[in-house]
Write a protein that binds this DNA or RNA. Structure first.
Length: 692
DNA sequence: AATATCCGTATTTTT
DNA sequence: TACGGATATT
């Protein structure tokens, strides 16, 4: 029965079951650290071993990183070529791939452009202005809010009125205007051959349900495996069902979903655990396998994680339906530490010292991580790490792609790739000296940009010199026309060279736009370097939007230390990761749970699961930090503080921790800070006494 | 019509 | 801080 004993030899019986089960839909409930990745990868290996054609296997993961990690494992257990033929990737990247092939039937050009979230928001903003809801100061919702409403409506498949009522009550008066904007937004996307993230899923779902394309799409795969099923949304659930040949088919598609309802942390993206809970209903006859043996963490760490989860209210916002009690054979290990600190800087110093200390004990930086709720929570720590020359890489938070100058360059490429991409034209044209909204509008008319069929012609017209620009923009426009002319033929001019060719234009335009233009220009070189990996402009652009580099550029660290670095990560981006030593920082109430989630039951439950995810990343050593004082506002120079308390999720389980206050003395800085507060008050009182 | 300047306000998580 | 929006200036 076990064709490849070597492959599956070190799996436990439940894992074996998950690997070998055939014939009915399979749901694997896999607790944190229970070997989920290994099990899924082994199942793929086994399928290939059993003679399934690799390209008839679809493996859907949450991130591209997860997909490549899994396929890497498959590759090392089979021959590499088999692994590379498996369809692996995120829902969005798979949608992209399918739509490039099947999209024509739905009226999509094969080189449509994919808008990332901020592009989509900008487009929504443009439409909002055009429809006349921008100027008047009648407090119309901002473009971010409009985009937010739209996204929630689409992804949760709810009516606009419902979304307004439950999530945006203060916008309820603007229902009609929003409808106008949404339909204009949609029309515009279609006309210009651009898709936003949601469209990728919507088109995929629509195609799989279409009488013509549906059967062809369902015929592509015999096995569909989905990772992180608890974080799928209703559309994705529809897609899976739409892609499956039903159980009464001659050869039904075999589905295998893997997930952990205790780790659902993407509710804000309309993911709903209900998908996972409803799996047995959606797929009649489904078998459920539960993995409970944890191979990652020591028992004392699991004890804390289990206790946190168990303390969740079992009422409405139920945290886990699939009960499981994680256990480990790694019974030995220190109790987790819970450290309170005087303030953030004491926390930063303690974390650094603990990390260096662990390295002395032989734990290299790569097996240590610092996790936090929000991207900016690591700001203080990053300063301290830099000061101490500790190299690190940060995952999550602000992305390099969102930097304005990077978008500038990508817009240039996007025009070449899809000349009907108005958003890109808009950005590029208005970057030139003396060109504002009115001139852009006139240019768009002269170039006949509005009619999508003529788009390539419009680009040709621009290159030929059509489109009068103000004198101040003359040199810039000439350079742009020349650069476009050189780059227009994608076939024998690789994307990296196109980026290089477009750089002089950037060099002319950046100084007016940005104060640190040299630094920004050197980023363009970096972009050229990453473009070198791609054969075509369209591939490069699409990959970049669907799989943006998750890490922000690493700041600290002399080059000779580059082979060892510390990981900093948001908890969201840490999903699936594991490290020997984990520090969770800013575990104070208001941070975890985020105070934005207070007052909302479902939100609170999700924050708790977030804490659970953070705690279960640790293999051997876990330290949770809570600074008890922090600044009222992150920005201004004022030194007002508020007192915080240890996260409410940890408070009830404190006896499972070794507790301590930070050894770090308040720094000189903070002593001065403290005095200054008093001094300032004194001075103010004195001054006030002068005019009272 | 474009741009310079000032003011106020924000505060998550990501494909 | 840093960005968007509104107002003032060129």
């Amino acid at each position: 029965m076990f064709a490849s004993p070597a492959i599956a030899a070190d799996l436990n019986p439940q894992q074996q079951h998950a690997v070998h089960h055939r014939g009915t839909p399979l749901l694997v409930v896999a607790g944190a650290g229970t070997g989920k990745t290994k099990t899924l990868a082994t199942r793929v290996v086994q399928l290939i071993d059993d003679g399934v054609d690799p390209q008839r296997i679809l493996l859907l993961t949450f991130t591209r990183r997860a997909a490549s990690e899994m396929l890497h494992r498959v590759a090392s257990a089979t021959d590499d070529r088999a692994a590379s033929r498996v369809w692996g990737g995120t829902f969005h990247s798979t949608a992209n791939r399918l739509l490039r092939n099947f999209g024509q039937t739905a009226g999509l050009s094969p080189n449509f452009t994919v808008l990332d979230q901020s592009d989509a928001t900008d487009l929504m903003g443009m439409v909002r202005t055009e429809e006349g809801f921008g100027e008047r100061s009648k407090r119309f919702p901002k473009k971010e809010t409009v985009a937010g409403i739209y996204g929630r409506m689409v992804n949760s498949q709810a009516k606009l009125s419902e979304v307004l009522e439950t999530d945006y009550p203060w916008c309820a008066d603007h229902g009609d205007e929003l409808k106008t904007i949404f339909s204009a937004y949609t029309a515009r996307k279609r006309r210009h051959q651009v898709l936003d993230y949601d469209d990728l899923l919507l088109f995929w779902r629509a195609l799989s349900a279409a009488p013509s394309a549906g059967p062809a799409m369902r015929d592509l795969f015999d096995h569909i495996l989905i990772d992180e099923y608890q974080d799928t949304n209703p559309i994705q659930s529809d897609i899976i069902r739409g892609m499956c040949r039903p159980s009464d088919d001659e050869r039904p598609t075999e589905v295998c979903a893997v997930g952990d309802d205790a780790q659902a942390i993407y509710g804000f993206r309309c993911a709903s655990v209900e998908n996972m809970w409803a799996f047995p209903d959606h797929f009649p006859g489904a078998t459920t396998v539960t993995l409970e043996q944890n191979y990652r963490s020591t028992s004392p760490i699991l004890a804390v994680a289990n206790a946190v989860l168990a303390s969740a209210p079992t009422t409405a916002g139920a945290t886990s339906h699939f009960t499981k009690e994680l256990w480990s054979t790694k019974t030995e290990g220190p109790k987790p530490h819970l450290l309170t600190h005087h303030d953030e800087s004491a926390q930063s110093r303690t974390v650094c010292e603990n990390i260096l200390d662990a390295r002395e004990r032989g734990m290299d930086l790569r097996s240590q991580a610092v996790l936090f709720r929000a991207g900016h929570h690591s700001d203080g720590l990053e300063l301290e790490l830099t000061r101490r020359d500790i190299p690190y890489v940060k995952y999550g938070g602000l992305k390099y792609l969102e930097a304005a100058h990077v978008k500038d360059l990508l817009s240039l490429l996007r025009i070449l790739d899809n000349p009907s991409d108005m958003l890109a034209w808009h950005r590029v044209l208005s970057s030139m000296e003396g060109i504002g909204p009115a001139t852009v509008r006139r240019l768009a008319e002269e170039l006949e940009l509005e009619s999508a069929e003529n788009a390539p012609l419009s680009l040709a017209r621009f290159i030929d010199g059509i489109g009068k620009v103000p004198a101040a923009a003359k040199a810039e426009a000439d350079e742009l026309r020349a650069a476009f002319a050189d780059c227009i033929d994608d076939a024998d001019f690789p994307p990296a060279q196109q980026v290089e060719r477009l750089k002089p234009f950037c060099a002319m335009v950046f100084p007016n736009r940005y104060d640190n233009s040299t630094a920004r220009l050197s980023d363009i070189d970096q972009l050229a370097a990453s473009a070198a990996a791609y054969g075509s402009r369209n591939r490069f652009l699409t990959e970049l939007t669907l799989d943006p580099p998750g890490k922000t550029s690493d700041q600290a660290g002399p080059p000779h230390l580059d082979d060892d670095w510390l990981t900093l990560s948001t908890i969201h981006s840490a999903k699936g990761g594991e490290w020997r030593a984990v520090h969770v920082i800013h575990a104070a109430d208001g941070n975890i749970p985020s105070d934005m989630a207070l007052g909302d039951q479902a939100g609170m439950a999700e924050e708790l699961r977030l804490m659970y995810v953070a705690l279960t990343r640790a293999k051997d050593e876990l330290t949770v930090h809570a600074p008890l004082r922090f600044h009222v506002n992150r920005f201004g120079q004022d030194d007002r503080h508020v007192l915080a308390q240890v996260s409410r999720f940890l408070d009830p389980v404190r006896d499972l921790f070794d507790e301590g206050a930070s050894q770090a003395q308040p720094s000189d800085d903070s002593i001065i800070e403290l005095d200054t507060v008093g001094v300032a008050d004194e001075v103010d009182t004195l001054l006030a006494s002068l005019w009272d």
